[in-house]
Design a protein around this nucleic acid. Structure first.
Lengths: 212, 212
DNA sequence: CAGTGTGAAGAGGTTCACAGCG
DNA sequence: CGCTGTGAACCTCTTCACACTG
């Protein structure tokens, strides 16, 4: 019986959201020299129950061996395939402020399937300057260049006031996934995926639980 | 009958997680000069249903008027109180790399209830250098200084390999809430809250949905 | 016999739909 | 008459518990 790779049941988005953390954890187990793990070891590391991990993985196939556990490198290969990061996605970064600089200098994305191809900014003082290994380009040329390069993934690191405009440009250029660092809700057409990063929201979520 | 401020029913964490986004949206409505809004207007802006917003708010009190909607500035006051950001929390930032620099230079936290008080790093070349308005301090003095200043909230922007060690120091110093930018799971005692920011995980969550 | 994979049971979260009020 | 606040219905997600297997 073959793997049920294209699964019959629909996959909850919340499960998809956990897979990157499973992958991240498996990679550190591998880096520690381990070859085999179990749902309970993964659960301990992640603060989840073993049942949840087994159930999540079971949406995609049967990756473990009863009585033994999971082969770490095999499971890494499977998760990279499932998340479609068994390749490198070219990414466009918009915004060359402090945050854009931190993103451009951060070398942790490559390992996870992403490589910045272009950096754009609207500030004439920044255009043609270099940032990390990139030359900052004028946002006026974004649509043309991103479309020509068939880039489908973007990171948005501009001020909130500019975010919706830039998002519209990205969509026009054919981008289908946007990681939005601006603290504002983007409106995008169906078929475009947005993930928001809002550190201030995370902070406020924690202070709720602190005693006055 | 007074407000049911300390509610009888337990509040789901997922509801708490949405409140900062309600607050953020209300503030932009206020900035647009509006005085009144409705659960459906908020829902439209946030991509949620109006019923969800009414239900979420009802955990904390009755803030609206039937037939009319919500007074924006009143609701802002209430949400700031609920989230305990009707004050300024002093924050310790650990890590003065590119990301730490972007965080230190970002002035959007103050409006949301947070102010950086100290910046620490372990690199002797960085200690005593200035970063934004701060002087980078030796991490060896972290526990003493953070404890003396009674700081309860931290941002962790160090490499993954150092994150658990620094987290242990923060906990020892009395910190109760940690915003963790390192792509690793922290182990902390009960009563310490951790929120993780992992852009790579968000990216992988989106590529799952992209056609090959 | 340790640990997976999975139906079934149990919690938890969302949406419905309408009473009630301004 | 419009919009809130909320039980009840509905749906989704998590945990349980055990048959099964290397």
């Amino acid at each position: 019986m073959p793997h049920k790779q294209p699964p019959g049941r629909p996959i909850p988005d919340i499960v998809v959201g956990r897979l990157p953390f499973y992958l991240r954890t498996l990679r550190s187990l591998a880096a520690e020299g381990l070859e085999i793990t179990s749902s309970s070891e993964l659960g301990d590391r992640l603060g989840l129950t073993s049942a949840q991990i087994r159930k999540d993985l079971s949406y995609f196939g049967e990756f473990g061996k009863q009585g033994l556990g999971y082969n770490i490198s095999f499971l890494i290969v499977q998760l990279r395939r499932i998340l479609k990061v068994d390749r490198i996605w070219e990414v466009v970064l918009v915004g060359a402020g402090d945050l854009g600089r931190a993103i451009a200098n951060y070398h942790g994305f490559h390992d996870r399937g992403f490589e910045i191809r272009f950096v754009f900014d609207s500030d004439p003082a920044k255009v043609r300057q270099s940032l990390s290994q990139y030359t900052i380009q004028d946002i006026a040329s974004l649509v043309e260049k991103v479309r020509a390069a068939k880039i489908r993934v973007a990171m948005l690191a501009v001020p909130a006031a500019a975010a919706q405009n830039v998002s519209d440009l990205l969509v026009e250029a054919g981008v289908q996934a946007i990681l939005n660092y601006a603290p504002t809700s983007l409106v995008v057409p169906k078929g475009v995926y947005v993930q928001n990063i809002d550190p201030g929201a995370h902070m406020q979520r924690m202070t709720f639980y602190l005693e006055a």
